[in-house]
Nucleic acid binder design. Structure first.
Lengths: 210, 210
DNA sequence: ATGCTTTTGATAGTGACTGTCATCTCTTAG
DNA sequence: CTAAGAGATGACAGTCACTATCAAAAGCAT
């Protein structure tokens, strides 16, 4: 919390905030720590990897590690919920119903990803599935996607964002989706077939009219 | 895991396992630790209370504390998901539909509780709502109630326990219920009006026929 | 270069949790 | 009633995530 922020971060719109020279190094450090952390986790396991090791691998001090990531699990869980996907959902063709719009957005998100991004996602997902502590962390933030989904549906349907039925519907959708993805054994399948899984939601969900 | 369990715990039926003398002391110690922990949490806050303090208050060593509770938060979260409620749900009058049966079971569970049990629940609930780490712990076990609910509905309807539609339905129900209870500000209301909240589920849920 | 801010590393904690081992206390066989 | 075995306890030492503090270093502007 700087006292006189002469040049703070731009309001975080869709466009890239014109990288400000010094901040590039920070982004690089952050990415480096994250990357080294994930590699180490994959090689030695999550619990077996200490923050000290990660810091050493990324060539920073442990102090610095904690300046970039508040907790060890943040290296895995950060950015997990992709706000972009919900933005795509909002912008999906109007004739799609909410569930179809979700499918559209998810499929499109996967299509946008490069192979290495997909690999990263899969690694991450495998970690989350296998390490209880990480699974815990994901669940803890379950409200975020519910919130985002509520909002996305509200915008699409021109309904108020605080419509209780919408929130209820979104909560049910996320809950159902959660059970669907967790039922899968292989992490790869759960991820790539996400679009298909969403299609099953309308078997049990029903959106009450405004 | 004793090598020769001459007298292990009975198969845990509904009836009370005839308490075996020494085990009574263990139960007492466990209850004591838990009670002291909750009181301290309420007085000084969760993070501000150390395991050492709890152990001291309960007059055991820190080592012993960890023999009874694997983690600090287990003192709060243990026994949170009440399997009995689901048992009551299974036994609810046949003419009730799944949602009505849930309401029936929840209301009955509250009715069974003594005042101090209710107080305990409310304290616990307030803690969970206010301490992020505890909330995390609850979310982590979200699968348990989904599982139990799936099973309860399956039994009531005479459908197979692994019916994917039922699991989906249960997941949606729990997800929706979660958002409903979290929307509330005052913990007391969220708990005691749980039965009423469940009634709203059928606004968005719909169980596909077998 | 000279000030200023921001980032960094070193250091010293705290507290949850683990593992080990000797002691002590029940329980049961004899 | 007692001895032996099993289980429970406490003391101790250690690991590791995470916090707080402070001085040195590096980026940036004038």
């Amino acid at each position: 919390m700087p006292s006189t922020p002469l040049r703070t971060d731009p309001p975080a719109h869709g466009a890239q905030p014109v990288t400000g020279l010094r901040e590039r190094k920070k982004a690089k450090t952050r990415a480096s720590i994250r990357s080294h952390a994930l590699h180490l986790f994959k090689e030695q396991g999550y619990a077996e990897t200490t923050v000290e090791q990660i810091a050493a691998a990324a060539e920073v001090s442990p102090s610095t590690f904690f300046r970039y990531f508040a907790t060890k699990d943040e290296t895995v869980l950060d950015d997990l919920i992709d706000a972009d996907t919900f933005r795509i959902m909002v912008a999906a063709p109007v004739e799609l119903n909410p569930i179809e719009a979700m499918q559209y957005a998810v499929n499109r998100t996967f299509a946008r990803m490069t192979d290495e991004m997909l690999d990263l996602e899969i690694t991450r997902n495998a970690l989350i599935q296998s390490v209880p502590e990480l699974r815990k962390g994901v669940m803890a933030e379950i409200n975020r996607p519910i919130e985002l989904l509520t909002e996305a549906i509200a915008i699409r349907l021109g309904r108020p964002t605080d419509d209780p039925d919408l929130r209820l519907y979104a909560g049910a959708a996320v809950g159902a989706l959660m059970t669907l993805t967790q039922a899968r054994d292989e992490p790869r399948a759960a991820m790539t077939s996400l679009g298909e899984l969403i299609g099953r939601l309308d078997r049990v969900l029903h959106l009450p009219p405004a």
